[in-house]
């Protein structure tokens, strides 16, 4: 069975991933909506920038985070001076790294679901007296909800597996930033760590598979529900 240390690794991983997803959710939806529904100069550039963490080596993403959010960086220094908050070497830093890496996947899932909302329904809501804001909250948002949920599960699964950006930006500190992948990596470095590695690897597979299945189920359910519900 799992040792207390292994349980704390799992709980830390879940905490980091859940915070990362909750942190990213509103921003990801706002970006997805902008790209799906608005035409503005720089739209392609914004789209490319969002997708950058998907194609960059994660180590580079981690290094960029370090430059920006490290104690000497412009944002990190400000956070430190103003709030006394330090992200580096802290679990919140791991959450930020996971959030940045999860963002592109979440935006993609949400963008597809927003694009699938028939604009003519929004037009219909407007002719019935709804302001643009009300039409958004009563039509676009509920109809794209399955995409929000699917994007969140996908982002959660991605966050659970985050390694490169995390170890570069937040480092590998037991109890703070040593999430499942980092713990597995650390176990591999130690003689006699194979048992712990195997147990943690199985946990990783179960959690990731679970998140993917839930995400898939949400998408399927949303596609079929309206035809069957009565």
């Amino acid at each position: 069975m799992l040792t207390p240390a292994e349980w704390s690794i799992i709980l830390l991983s879940l905490r980091v991933s859940i915070v990362a997803v909750l942190l990213t959710l509103p921003l990801a939806y706002a970006l997805a909506w902008l790209i799906a529904r608005r035409r503005f100069p720089g739209r392609m550039l914004l789209d490319a920038a969002i997708h950058l963490p998907l194609v960059l080596p994660p180590v580079v993403t981690g290094w960029l985070l370090l430059l920006l959010l490290g104690r000497g960086g412009p944002i990190g220094g400000w956070l430190d001076r103003t709030f006394g908050v330090t992200l580096v070497f802290h679990w919140t830093g791991a959450a930020v790294a996971a959030a940045v890496m999860a963002l592109p996947l979440m935006v993609r899932a949400m963008r597809l679901s927003i694009e699938a909302v028939d604009r003519r329904l929004v037009d219909a809501a407007r002719t019935l007296g709804a302001s643009p804001g009300r039409a958004f909250f009563t039509i676009t948002l509920p109809l794209s909800a399955p995409g929000i949920a699917a994007g969140a599960m996908l982002g959660f699964a991605r966050s659970l597996g985050e390694f490169g950006a995390t170890i570069t930006f937040a480092a590998n500190i037991a109890g703070q930033t040593r999430t499942l992948p980092l713990a597995i990596y650390t176990g591999l470095q130690l003689p006699g760590g194979e048992g712990a590695v195997a147990r943690l690897a199985v946990i990783s597979i179960v959690l990731s598979l679970g998140a993917l299945l839930v995400s898939e189920w949400l998408v399927r359910r949303s596609q079929g529900s309206r035809a069957h519900v009565l």
Partner: peptide, 13 residues
């Protein structure tokens, strides 16, 4: 406007 669209456009949700 009271607009009856050709494709009705009822809100499916």
């Amino acid at each position: 406007a009271g607009y009856v669209f050709q494709d009705a456009r009822l809100f499916p949700h």
